[in-house]
Amino acid sequence: MAEPGRPLGGGGAGGEGLGRSRGGFTSKLHLSADGRCRPLSLVVTAGQRADCTQFRSVLEKIRIPRTGPGRPRTKPDSLAAGKAYSNGPCRQYLRQRGISHTIPEKTDSQAARLRKGSRGGRPPGFDEDRYKKRNTVERAINRLKQSWAVATRYDKCGYVFLGTATAATLIIWLRT
């Protein structure tokens, strides 16, 4: 089960992946994780970037090598995500790729749908048991933060920080 994740830290402008956010001058590390809390893909952005804007790029970077011959898998079996990803473009992208998903509906979207009556359509499917497993991405972030270099983010260039996070990800994969 893959999950696009919450950001790690804050963000910025330009190629440095640094920018102004509520937390100050920081960057965000967007990621997806498998069911065993291992990061599958990483994207570094500026701190002010919204999570849902990186949804597609995070999912498109997933590459899971096969044990035998063949191209790596690029499509997760299923996906659980938070309310930040409960918008039309994210759901449409998942439908196009044929990825089953569990994303709760925002309360304002739900109220708008109910106001429209029968024209509002039916509510999106939601599996509570599968949604309970969504915390794997938070646990993957905590594993990454065990690496001091990832937690402090002293690297000034975005590609250097991405390399540091990738090295921490490799250590996580080798330990499990």
Rank of each mutant, 00 (worst) to 15 (best):
R119S: 04
W148A: 07
T152R: 14
K156W: 08
S100N: 09
P123K: 08
Y93L: 14
R95W: 08
S118P: 14
G158D: 03
L162P: 04
Y131R: 04
K116M: 09
E138N: 03
P104D: 01
E128I: 13
I99E: 02
R95Q: 13
A111D: 14
D155K: 06
G120N: 14
G120M: 08
Q96G: 03
V150F: 08
G121L: 05
T102R: 00
R122Y: 10
E105L: 14
A112I: 10
I103T: 02
A151L: 07
R143M: 10
A149E: 06
P124F: 01
Y93C: 05
Y93T: 12
S100Y: 06
W148C: 03
D155Y: 01
S118A: 15
D108Y: 08
D155F: 02
K156M: 05
G121E: 02
Y159L: 15
D127Y: 02
L144G: 09
L144I: 13
L114G: 04
F126V: 06
L162A: 15
S109I: 00
S147F: 15
N135I: 02
P124G: 05
E105S: 11
G117W: 11
A112G: 04
A151G: 01
S118Y: 07
I103W: 01
G158W: 05
I141R: 05
A149N: 06
V137C: 02
N142I: 00
G158N: 10
D108G: 02
P123V: 13
K133N: 09
V160K: 10
P124S: 07
S100R: 13
L114I: 12
G158C: 09
R97Q: 12
V150N: 06
Q110N: 01
Q146G: 05
R122T: 12
S147K: 09
R134I: 09
E138H: 04
S118M: 10
Q96V: 14
N142S: 15
G120W: 04
D108A: 12
V160N: 08
Y159A: 12
T136K: 11
N135K: 03
V137W: 05
R153E: 10
P104V: 01
A112N: 11
V160R: 15
P124E: 06
A151P: 00
T152G: 00
C157M: 15
Q96F: 04
T107Y: 01
V150Y: 03
P124T: 05
R153S: 09
R130K: 12
N142K: 12
R139V: 13
G120V: 08
I99K: 04
T102I: 07
A140V: 05
D129S: 11
E138A: 08
R115L: 13
L162E: 09
R119V: 07
D155Q: 14
G120R: 00
K133H: 14
G158T: 06
P124A: 04
T107E: 09
R130G: 04
P104I: 04
Q146K: 13
I141E: 01
P124N: 03
R122E: 11
L144T: 11
R113M: 03
Y131V: 02
R95L: 14
A111F: 10
P104L: 07
G120Q: 10
T107K: 15
D155V: 05
G121Y: 01
S109V: 00
Q96P: 00
